[in-house]
Each structure stands twice: as structure tokens, then as C-alpha cells.
Design a binder for these strands. Structure first.
Lengths: 137, 137
DNA sequence: TCTTGACTTAGAGCGCGCTCGAACCCGTAG
DNA sequence: CTACGGGTTCGAGCGCGCTCTAAGTCAAGA
């Protein structure tokens, strides 16, 4: 598979793939007789996992650490596991924080809903106006 | 309240507070006779809300839009609400995505746990060795 | 044969969100 | 009076993660 195909299938650009190889996030790819990169489909699995790490906010320097352990092969599993477990905790905390923010957003949005409701009440004819914040049942 | 106090209470640096004012994220602050910024405690509520928007990944240009509507005052509630509702949807999607990533992380970590278990089994004396991936019950 | 288009490398540039430095101004404690 | 610990403005610089340009190579199709 050539870099353009891998780009299409991975969702990365060819530029980004070369950049990732340059910094060590992707292993140095085999080249064909034209010195073009020639990929095996298995690289997609790794790219997809990198995408998960990225989505969850792992900085590239940490991905590099993980990638280096992976390249090092057997004997690094315990450290890889520890790295992922630490990351998982951070992601869990992140989810909790986002959920807390969602509650705040809900409250804020509800406030605007009520503002609009008051406006609607004000616009209503005098004999139909109801005091208070909520629409009558 | 002076900028240093606000920095302590808000968790931002004085540099960042000035930067936020400069770009319009914070309203132009009153100055005292020494031309120093003089803040009212109420600004903390706004800064805290900005922090929520930031935590949830809203880019500054969108916060600026919201801040501008806020400054514009009454009559902009519907648009502010719409902006927050769109953002809420993005945050919900983000939480879903993170949870999906957490499942992948769990699987990956479980894989390493099993690797370590095999290693432990290999290290055990011959008569105690058990075939298979899982620790015996 | 010639053109097209995808590939190569090295290195510069960019958008974001700060972060910091320089030079200066003030008010207060010693 | 002086030193110090704030504050001020303006603008440059930085770390991140790409993103793009330039100049060249190569293979395949008209």
C-alpha cells in the first residue's frame, strides 16, 4: 500500500503520515525500488489506536514513549500497561469533568429558556398574563 | 480587587487576564486613579463560566462570540442559547467518544494483564504450570 | 516520447492559546 | 529618600501539532 492509499484509509494526510514517521510515532516504513513507502495493512490498527490516544488528549510526547516501548517489543509490556492505566485514569477524570460542565450548560440553557418564556408572556395579551417564571400548566 | 488578587482567586495568571481583556473575552476593566485595573468580585462568575467553555473544548473565537452577545445585553438571549445548545451537543458527542475510547483502553490493558499472567505462569515451577491464558480459579 | 500525477526530502510556516520581556509608573514600609 | 513589590503597555516569543512549499524522482498512460 502506498502513502496515498494509507492516507485515504486512515484519514490522515500523507503529510501527517510522513511527519509521524519522522518523529517516531510510526515505524520507519519499507521503501519499494522507487524509494516510495510501501505499507502493510496492519499499520492501520496502530494508526487507529494512536487516534484513540489523540482523541483522549494524550500529548504526542507520551504517544512517543508508548510507541518506543512497542518498538522495543517483548519485555516492555508492564510499562506499556502502566502508561495506559495512568492515561485511563486521566480520561476518566476528563469524562467526569465534562459531565460536570454539561450540568452547568444545562442550567445556563434553562435560564435562557425561562428568559424567552417571560418574553412570550410579556407579549401575550394583558388578560392572559401570568406572573412567575414558568408557563402555566 | 486588583489584578493580582483576581489572578489568585480565578486561577488565571495576571498575564492571561490582561490577554483575555485585550481580545475581548473579559470586559474592559475599570481603572483606579493609578490606572490599575479594579475588579468587582462578580467577574469571577464569568471567568469560571469561561473556564467551563474552555474545559469542554470551545475555541476562543466561539467564546468571543458568546462574550460579545453577553456584552450586547438584552435581546441576544435566543442566540446565546442556540450557541450553548450547539456546544452542548458537541460536548455530549465528545463524552460518547471518550467513553468509546475508554472501552478500547480497557481491552488493551486487559491484553497486557494477560501477557503478564502468562509470564507468571511460565515462571512457576513445572508441576504448577497451567495451560491457557487465565489464572486458575 | 511526453505528460501527468503521485511520490521523495528538507525545511519553512501557521494557527492556537497563551507567556514573557522591556521599560516604565506608583504607593508604601523602612 | 529609597527600595520594593506591585501595577501598566506593547509587542515579541513559545510549544504544540501539524501543514505546506520547493525542487526533484519516477512509472504509467496517450
Amino acid at each position: 500500500m502506498k502513502i496515498g492509499d494509507l492516507a485515504k484509509r486512515s484519514g490522515l494526510t500523507a503529510h501527517t503520515i510522513r511527519y509521524y514517521e519522522r518523529i517516531g510515532l510510526l515505524p520507519y516504513a519499507d521503501r519499494n525500488q522507487s524509494r516510495h513507502r510501501d505499507y502493510d495493512a496492519s499499520i492501520l490498527t496502530w494508526i487507529e489506536f494512536l487516534g484513540r490516544l489523540k482523541t483522549t488528549g494524550m500529548p504526542i510526547r507520551d504517544m512517543l514513549r508508548y510507541a518506543a516501548l512497542r518498538e522495543a517489543g517483548a519485555g516492555t509490556e508492564a510499562e506499556r500497561r502502566a502508561l495506559l492505566e495512568r492515561h485511563r485514569e486521566r480520561v476518566r477524570a476528563q469524562v467526569d469533568e465534562l459531565n460536570a460542565c454539561l450540568l452547568v450548560l444545562d442550567t445556563k440553557i434553562d435560564g435562557y429558556v425561562e428568559t424567552e418564556q417571560r418574553k412570550t408572556d410579556d407579549d401575550a395579551p394583558e388578560q392572559n398574563r401570568i406572573r412567575g417564571r414558568r408557563k402555566p400548566a
